[in-house]
């Protein structure tokens, strides 16, 4: 049978910053082809296809099950694959190769991580699971 794609509504204007993204306006309805954990979702809008940030979308209908995991306060160990310097107050700065604990995997790709006493959002695309090598 046909593949039914989830429809999402764009909640804020989005202007592309690289060639495989697409420009969208508030209220546009898009179909999602792929939901990447890093927070970029591949979508289809009219004849256009490209990546847009999950945080600019909301489900048109309530999804059947929660899409987002609950926080896991015990956490999972990850290692930073790149350094990142916090740009907003709720983010955390980390160097390359630091082992941290992920306590909440958010759909927008900005996971909540803990290092010692410090907690903040960090881009999931700069993390890989501890004990594995980045492919």
């Amino acid at each position: 049978g046909p593949i039914i794609l989830d429809t999402y509504r764009v909640i804020a204007d989005f202007e592309k910053t690289s060639k495989h993204e697409i420009n969208l306006q508030t209220g546009d309805l898009v179909e999602i082809v792929e939901k990447n954990q890093n927070g970029w979702w591949f979508c289809q809008y009219e004849s256009k296809r490209g990546w847009i940030p999950a945080s600019y979308l909301e489900p048109l209908d309530g999804p059947e099950e929660a899409e987002e995991d609950e926080p896991n306060y015990e956490g999972e160990r990850f290692v930073t694959a790149r350094a990142y310097t916090a740009e907003q107050e709720d983010e955390i700065s980390l160097e390359l190769g630091e082992t941290i604990t992920v306590i909440h995997k958010l759909l927008d790709g900005w996971w909540v991580v803990r290092k010692g006493e410090e907690t903040g959002h960090f881009p999931s695309m700069f993390l890989h699971k501890a004990g594995t090598r980045e492919i």
């Binding site: 495989h20 993204e21 970029w40």
Partner: peptide, 22 residues
Amino acid sequence: DIKNPPQNPPPRPPPETRRKRV
């Protein structure tokens, strides 16, 4: 390749339109 997502982290949620968490 278009199948590969952008290499930069996605922008944080737009401040006044934070996604309604389900």
